[in-house]
Nucleic acid binder design. Sequence first.
DNA 1: ACCATTACATCGTAGAACGATGTAATGGTG
DNA 2: CACCATTACATCGTTCTACGATGTAATGGT
Lengths: 154, 154
Amino acid sequence: MPQDATNEPDGVGTGPPVPRVPDPPLDDSDYRALAEFRHALRVFLRFSEEAARAESLTPNQHQLLLAIRASPAAPTVTELSRQLQLRPNSTLELLRRAESAGLVELHTDETDHRRQLASITEDGEARLERLTRLHRDELRRFRSQAGDLLDSLG
Amino acid sequence: MPQDATNEPDGVGTGPPVPRVPDPPLDDSDYRALAEFRHALRVFLRFSEEAARAESLTPNQHQLLLAIRASPAAPTVTELSRQLQLRPNSTLELLRRAESAGLVELHTDETDHRRQLASITEDGEARLERLTRLHRDELRRFRSQAGDLLDSLG
DNA sequence: ACCATTACATCGTAGAACGATGTAATGGTG
DNA sequence: CACCATTACATCGTTCTACGATGTAATGGT
């Protein structure tokens, strides 16, 4: 009994790569702005990765903790898949590794035995808090850079 | 003769994960805003990945093409490493794969035989242009979402 | 000429996301 | 309340790529 026929991540937008081609021409300055935006993004992500690593976390473990912590109730694997834009099986594997690392706990939902509810451990939350503090400044920096660059794209 | 003692990516900031811990407390709304920002970012990156794949490119090949196209002159491997925040050897491997795919060309710099200068092929540029057009709308969307979310962080 | 430095080259490895596939639990339907 | 489509997770093998470690050629200063 196959089920997840496509195994696509439950996306927010349904079909992104529609090949409709808008008109406006692209000049060098457009490419430069785009490239600078991507560079700023990569610098931010590098920072985030190094910060996570300093807490002995992988970048995705960090994101996982954040997603769980920000959730109003203990989220299911499927909900986390949406948030993290990963396939459900990948999310589960990520959860298992995080569980082994003592960062999260998984419990079967009592009212629906198909579901696994994820919660964050004390240790996981402590690491997340430190990471989050470190991210605030860097995010401010990214915000101003990226904002300017994207504005220059019209 | 070892040389690249650290093999670190020539970063913009020198030492990101300094464990100074700023004061302000974090509440649920901070975590929610952060998580939503990350979600918006992941949706954007997913979009970008799918768009690249629709042009038979990997996400990094797309970024590579953009970096070369945006460069005022044919960039070296080291310069691209900076832009893409990758280790030089990873950048070279990325370039070689892109070269095999007919997207870029590599030529030894005539004035400095250590350097390899990267240029984009006609086909590479055509694919990049289509991709870039597709990205404009999505970037606008991301800009407004991310802007609001980051503003709510103070 | 000498040597430190720069810039690329090669290779083996590991980690993780994925596709394919399978199984258990649920819920609507007649 | 049997039936079956759907939902939700589980498992496994594969693949792809960024990386560390290491090496070599070219350059530039003294």
